[in-house]
């Protein structure tokens, strides 16, 4: 597959897009992230796995600016972003979805996705008041891009539905659409398949791969479903107790003794389960 080759090329080139150096985050006595360093290459799909409380979501929260790390640096495309306002980080091209969906319930699917275009649009209060002219032209131009995302994710029939009225799987999809509308260079997905049935999971996995192939978007993914992780990621990192304990290809990580102990269970306990 051609795009597969292209991806391999990108990885070989090994251009680091996101470079996290020794970040830490403590909440009082709770050490959510002890110390983590991680380099993410442009255009790769990287999965973060680990037991509950390993610091996966806290890590994403630091990258997207929701938490300010106590220590360490986060460089995105040669720019220090640790401690920057989340809205500014979004404007640099980092989009994310949430573990427990954070859509704007009072708005239609279309408006939710249009909000993803917010940082790419310019009209302010005055041009919004006047509307006819600049604001209208801008709305129409960005609507066209939003429609591309809508048809990419097959959301055409839901455009004018209120998101609060949608089923769980669809809301996850709309949230992905909103993140994609930002035209992100880096996409952070926090359990995009949590709570989905098998069919929805496959659908989502396909979407993630397509996003990556078509737009070359770098994707960092937190996921618990091992089958999905092994299938779609190029690299897997494993967190435990706020530390990175392993990193490598899916196959290598699955064989790693430390990972098996921390996450998959020790050999003995697995035998015990089998017996």
């Amino acid at each position: 597959m051609l795009s597969g080759e292209r991806r391999a090329e990108v990885c070989q080139a090994g251009e680091v897009q996101l470079d996290v150096g020794g970040v830490a985050k403590h909440f009082g006595g709770v050490r959510a992230v002890e110390t983590i360093s991680l380099a993410v290459n442009r255009g790769e799909i990287l999965s973060i796995i680990g037991p509950n409380g390993a610091g996966k979501t806290s890590f994403l929260n630091m990258v997207s600016g929701f938490y300010r790390p106590d220590r360490g640096t986060i460089r995105f495309e040669e720019r220090e972003i640790a401690g920057m306002r989340p809205s500014k980080i979004a404007a640099l091209g980092i989009a994310r979805t949430f573990q427990n969906i954070a859509l704007f319930g009072g708005m239609t699917v279309l408006d939710n996705i249009m909000l993803g275009r917010h940082v790419r649009m310019k009209s302010g209060v005055l041009s919004s008041f006047l509307y006819w002219g600049f604001a209208q032209r801008e709305e129409i131009a960005h609507r066209a891009r939003v429609e591309e995302v809508i048809s990419f994710l097959d959301l055409e029939d839901l455009r004018k539905e209120q998101t609060s009225a949608l089923a769980f799987g669809l809301r996850k999809k709309v949230e992905l659409a909103r993140a994609l509308a930002l035209d992100p260079k880096l996409l952070l997905l926090d359990e995009p398949m949590g709570g989905m049935n098998q069919e929805e999971k496959e659908d989502m996995a396909r979407s993630i791969l397509e996003v990556n192939e078509e737009w070359g978007t770098t994707i960092i993914l937190i996921e618990h479903d091992m089958a999905v992780v092994m299938d779609i990621s190029e690299r897997v990192v494993v967190f435990d107790h706020g530390r990175k304990i392993a990193e490598g290809s899916p196959a290598a990580v699955a064989r790693d003794a430390e990972v098996i102990r921390a996450y998959l269970g020790t050999a003995r306990s697995r035998e015990g389960l089998a017996a």
Binding site: S64, S87, A90, A95, F98, A102, F104, H118, A179
Partner: peptide
């Protein structure tokens, strides 16, 4: 919170 994360100050 979501508003801030998608780029709204």
């Amino acid at each position: 919170i979501a508003a801030e994360i998608i780029g709204i100050n």
